[in-house]
């Protein structure tokens, strides 16, 4: 496996690889999300308890899953960078943090918009909501640290260390918040549980979820490329690439 992975430690090879897979992610996102959204908004049945407000589910749940998933991915990249000194892993830490923050924000906003009609308030200090909010703070910390350095390489490494510290802390925070919640609030709002989902709800959900994953992949490719070229400004291949891409525009 190492032999197969080895070439991708070279920034140029990785750059061209992301260039190759980027359009696939783009088209997959476009198709899956357009089908998923139309299905979710028009054709999926209304929930027998929650009515049409259940349609928020199709963006809330995928983005909530992805908000945690992206953090895990970011921490894995940070670990790779710290242990094996992969320079490109830093680049992916810097690339992933803003994406994760956006999905966390979406999960929070849609959660609030779902909570208002269902629970009667925009916000409750519920364990899940609180830990999602703290996750957003952790993301913002990583982004702020990443932006504070002038040197991109250092920025990526520092952000990676913070992401790793955060990933050790996340279970503790989650546990403590859950514990705090049960202690302070007796019987809270009834959770939305996980009812066995009907197939006609499951399929649009799957389309939306896969579409969101595709979008994450697509945006990650773009951001990763930005990070790679800004870290390798002086390399001939970056210079050739930049000049190549800018000339046709100037000719117009």
């Amino acid at each position: 496996m190492w032999k197969w992975l080895h070439p991708y430690a070279n920034p140029e090879v990785s750059y061209h690889f992301t260039d190759k897979i980027k359009p696939w992610f783009g088209w997959a996102t476009f198709l899956l999300l357009s089908i998923g959204f139309v299905w979710a908004l028009l054709f999926a049945p209304a929930d027998y308890q929650q009515g049409e407000s259940f349609r928020i589910f199709y963006i809330h749940v995928p983005s909530a899953i992805l908000s945690a998933g992206i953090y895990a991915g970011m921490a894995t990249a940070a670990l790779c960078s710290l242990v094996w000194q992969f320079k490109l892993a830093d680049a992916s830490v810097s690339a992933l943090a803003p994406i994760g923050a956006i999905f966390t924000a979406i999960a929070l906003v849609t959660g609030a918009a779902w909570g208002k009609p269902m629970w009667g308030t925009w916000w409750v200090w519920d364990a899940r909501l609180t830990s999602e909010l703290i996750l957003l703070f952790l993301y913002l910390g990583v982004i702020a640290l990443n932006n504070a350095f002038d040197d991109k390489q250092m920025a990526g490494k520092a952000a990676g260390i913070l992401a790793l510290v955060g990933v050790i802390n996340l279970p503790i925070i989650k546990y403590s918040v859950e514990w705090w919640n049960t202690l302070h609030q007796g019987a809270t709002v009834s959770k939305l549980g996980a009812p066995a989902m009907a197939a006609e709800m499951y399929w649009p959900f799957l389309f939306c979820f896969l579409g969101f994953i595709g979008l994450v992949g697509y945006v990650t490719c773009i951001r990763f490329q930005t990070e790679v070229i800004s870290r390798n400004k002086m390399r001939p291949w970056v210079r050739a690439l930049v000049c190549d891409n800018n000339q046709p525009e100037e000719a117009k």
């Binding site: 009515g51 049409e52 407000s53 349609r55 928020i56 963006i59 809330h60 906003v109 849609t110």
Partner: peptide, 14 residues
Amino acid sequence: GGYGFYVWLSYGVS
């Protein structure tokens, strides 16, 4: 079904 504001708010913001 009466939830228009919330549904469109969440889809719009997202």
